[in-house]
């Protein structure tokens, strides 16, 4: 018959892993199958590391938003700056590379906060709406619809006008429009899980409703939400940059990617690098997170599994 089938091939001892670990491992395996996604993951990881570790290498005299020193504008457009400023200088004489590093941290941190707040609020409301349903559920969903209908820019402008012009107000503005999406997603997932027999089994046995909700339904429905959140980070950064570019919310000296682009528009003929470099980084972040999110979505697609 088959070659080499004469001895019994022993099965490896069964590995005792929790289903989450097994799923994560399999997910990682699937992710590695797509080269583009791998590149995206690599880029995202690289950028995140840069944002976290980079600031320790930024020279002490580089101004951040709080204390700055106006440098000489004569350095602008000077091609012979050399290694002191590998990416050039901005309109205030600050080193571009240092600014980029600080801005990465700022942007990604802000985006993380936005998505984080959105997730927490969205999950709380969505799970309640899905599991309890009825009139409360309907009410929650209608409120969600209202927030979904908010036009983003106008809303952000309004918030910035009412609150102080700062990063925090931007974060609040963006968080308020991001949670509705998550509410809808997780409500859908909860409804699906609710219909599964194991929930009925738990009810039959007499487990309390809140316990079924928190300890059983939520852990089983959270995965698609995480995928969406990852995709959203890229989108939020884009939106943040757009808003700051338009001048909403931030003062010109804050190291933020959109702000840097905005500052650079005046000097576009002298030194186009002022725009292109921050612009490139904006693209890089959102692209990489989008690819990661895409990869995760593919991983979740049941047709591609096993």
């Amino acid at each position: 018959m088959r070659k080499g089938m004469d001895e019994t091939m022993p099965a490896p001892p069964p590995k005792r892993v929790s289903p989450m670990v097994a799923e994560v491992r399999y997910a990682l395996h699937l992710l590695t199958l797509n080269k583009l996604v791998l590149a995206g993951i690599g880029l995202a990881v690289g950028l995140t590391l840069l944002a976290i570790i980079g600031p320790f290498f930024v020279p002490a005299n580089t101004p951040n938003a709080i204390n700055f020193q106006l440098g000489s504008q004569s350095e602008l457009g000077n091609p012979n700056i050399g290694w002191a400023h590998p990416l050039g200088v901005d309109t205030y004489g600050r080193d571009t590379l240092s600014l980029i590093i600080l801005a990465l941290g700022l942007d990604m941190g802000a985006a993380g906060l936005v998505v984080g707040i959105g997730l927490v609020v969205g999950v709380l409301l969505g799970v309640t709406a899905g599991y309890i349903g009825g009139k409360i559920g309907e009410a929650i969903m209608r409120i969600t619809d209202i927030f979904l209908a908010l036009p983003l820019f106008i809303w952000a402008l309004a918030i910035a006008a009412v609150l102080t012009r700062s990063l925090n107000s931007l974060i609040i503005a963006l968080a308020t429009v991001s949670w509705p999406g998550y509410t809808r997603i997780i409500r859908g997932q909860v409804l699906v899980e609710k219909g599964k027999p194991y929930v009925e089994g738990l009810q039959a046995v007499g487990v309390a409703r809140w316990r079924i909700m928190l300890r059983h339904v939520v852990p089983n429905s959270i995965f698609p939400l995480l995928v969406q959140a990852t995709l959203d980070i890229g989108g939020v950064i884009l939106t943040l940059a757009a808003l700051t570019f338009l001048g909403v919310g931030l003062t010109p000296l804050v190291p933020e990617l959109g702000q840097m682009v905005s500052n650079g528009t005046t000097y576009i003929q002298i030194d186009p690098a002022l725009i292109t470099i921050p612009g490139l980084f904006i693209v890089a972040i959102s692209l990489s997170f989008n690819l990661v999110g895409d990869g995760l979505r593919d991983v979740l697609d049941p047709r591609l599994r096993r």
Binding site: S18, P19, M20, P197, Y198, L202, G206, V207, A208
Partner: peptide, 25 residues
């Protein structure tokens, strides 16, 4: 139930499921 693949919480151990049933009831 009918479907052995959906009648248990996939993220709970057998012991967890049994103990939870006993204690909840």
């Amino acid at each position: 139930f009918q479907d052995p693949y959906a009648s248990l919480d996939p993220r709970q151990t057998v012991k967890g499921a049994l103990v939870e049933a006993m204690r909840s009831s």
